[in-house]
């Protein structure tokens, strides 16, 4: 029972990390219809940036905040320099460019920081505490709380502020957003910035668990894709629920199905992606696109 409960809680923490990266994917997809394949590598660079800032003498938490802010700007720049100029190009062109960017960023990290793994300290203290039946590590609890707070802030941004409303309008019906005076490119720019900041958060949270190295996001991005597919690529709630489900299922399967174990866990993500696409292609919370003629 204790093992089961702790697997669930650990799964939720992993899931919270997948959820924040899945949210990043959903944000850029909802606003521009483009899946940013380089999102994971951008998150990896954000984690490296924290390490670099700490090497230059900044404490961990300020370094993490600076990295998230820089990532926001980098995401906005990516939109302005690559995505927007290609907005009339074919989808295949954009996908090719983003996959190219994925490889370029990966090599760039190896070039600057080498392929030797580096430790990145956790944002949270070591140690465990008991909560009823559960024995929870401070890190697990910290990850869940941080992601929950970020989700709450996003919710407040979109539901209570004028700019959040304008961002939703620009993503939903850009032609009409122009007619009420919203600058659609500016809203999409902010959307891509937020996506990169969320990605940075996932990178910073996951780095202490997997060590810092240029390939550290390979697994995480697959789980994030599974989460976004499961939840529905156009649904913010879906990304969160999908992320948590993927995290929990991954942990339970890795623990209780011996022949899968930790090595084959990634299969779980792929099975989830295939299964969702076969049974419910729009995901749990996604809306099927109806084109009215």
């Amino acid at each position: 029972m204790t093992l089961f409960a702790s697997q669930i809680v650990d799964g939720l923490a992993d899931g919270a990390i997948y959820a924040s990266l899945a949210l990043a994917l959903v944000f850029s997809y909802r606003s521009t219809g483009i899946v940013n394949f380089a999102q994971g590598e951008m998150a990896m660079l954000s984690a490296y940036l924290v390490w670099q800032l700490m090497a230059w003498g900044l404490p961990l938490i300020p370094a993490a905040l600076v990295s998230i802010a820089v990532s926001f700007v980098a995401g906005a720049l990516l939109y302005a320099s690559i995505v927007r100029p290609l907005s009339h190009a074919s989808l295949l062109t954009v996908v090719s460019v983003l996959i190219g960017l994925y490889l370029a960023l990966n090599s760039l990290a190896g070039f600057i920081w080498t392929y030797t793994i580096k430790p990145l300290p956790s944002l949270f203290p070591k140690g465990h505490f008991r909560l009823g039946w559960f024995n929870i590590s401070a890190e697990t609890a910290g990850i869940i709380i941080v992601v929950a707070v970020v989700l709450l802030l996003l919710y407040l941004l979109f539901e209570t502020t004028k700019i959040g409303l304008a961002m939703r309008g620009a993503a939903s019906t850009p032609d009409s957003a122009v007619l009420v005076g919203v600058s659609v490119p500016l809203m999409l720019l902010i959307g891509w910035g937020i996506a990169a900041a969320l990605g940075a958060l996932s990178g910073i949270l996951v780095a202490p668990r997997v060590f810092l190295n240029p390939t550290m996001m390979f697994g995480v991005i697959i789980y994030a894709f599974a989460a976004a597919t499961l939840g529905g690529f156009d649904s913010i709630v879906g990304a969160v629920v999908g992320g948590l489900l993927v995290g929990v299922v991954e942990n339970l399967v890795g623990t209780y199905i011996p022949w899968i174990g930790p090595d084959l866990k990634i299969i779980v993500a792929l099975v989830l992606i295939f299964g969702t696409l076969l049974i419910k292609p729009d995901g749990l919370f996604g809306r099927s696109k109806v084109v009215r003629l």
Binding site: K162, L165, A166, R168, G169, S172, T173, D175, S176, A177, L179, V180, G181, V182
Partner: peptide
């Protein structure tokens, strides 16, 4: 615009609020 162009995903109230964006 033709075809009305309301923000279909947003509520009626949000559509009206967005009209007053400026």
């Amino acid at each position: 615009p033709q075809g009305r162009g309301t923000f279909a995903d947003l509520t009626v109230d949000e559509n009206i609020r967005l009209g007053a964006y400026l």
